[in-house]
Amino acid sequence: MKDRNILKQLDDHLAQLFIIPGLICLIVFVAYPAILTIYNSMTNLSMLTMRATKFVGLKNYVEIISGEEFWISLLNGIKYTFYSLIGQFFIGYVAALSLEKIIYCKSIFRVMLLTPWTFPSIALTFLFSWMLDPSFGIINFILEGLNIIDNPIPWFGAKNTALFSVIMMNIWFGFPFIMLTLLSGFQTIPNEYFEVAEIEGLNFIQKQKYVILPNLKKVFGVLLILRTIWIFNNYDFIFLTTGGGPGISSQTVPIYSYITAWKRMAMGRGSAITILLLIFVGLFIAIYFKVFGMSEKESNL
């Protein structure tokens, strides 16, 4: 009888019990490492010895902020994020609108258009390195054939095209996800709205402005913030194509941090760079919480 009571009591608190493993994960794998990073960032931790011999306070931060490399990386990161987002959203939106309109072959288009999104970053980047190769790449041949360029261009290897090429690759990779998400967003808009718009004789632009955008504000918002953070944090695409080069012409903040910590072996400083990165990401997270009604009542994510 007593056993039964204990079980019943445990069961009453099942919700609290079930959060324990998740809570442990959060503390051990996210909170503790984050705190460790803050500590590391104030030391001279070196990759060679994996030991910090000195507590240097804010020295790392001061030196990073007063150097040019950080600001160039930050600007590159902003460019990379901004243009990738514009391209992904534009193509994704156009594709979603077109898909919404057609009837035949709709699901074939929908599934096939998803292909770029399924690429592992390593395959994506190696494939693009192959296609953009200055000697054998098919893209240079096509562009030459169309008389768009006169000579083959080393896309990932030239200062003025490196970042641009990664952005193009990123747009190719990312537009299907925007398309798919917006498409499912369209499905939530009641059909009557479209019927009314039809009767009122709204043109294409007006339909976007008065029917679609107001109803998808939230979808757009969540999508925009999640993608911004993802692209801003993205490391693989640049590392595996240009490596941040030539020089630092395509180096973003995550790459800057990687090179500092693992190539120049200055892990303390590398940690400080990631904390600066986190401040920017934190800004976006704060906007997310602010905009998407994280009121006490409906605050489960």
Partner: peptide, 19 residues
Amino acid sequence: ISKSVLIAYMFPPIILIIP
């Protein structure tokens, strides 16, 4: 806790790699 999960979801992987 639910906010923390969301933050963890958005956390830059490059931060966690050294620790």
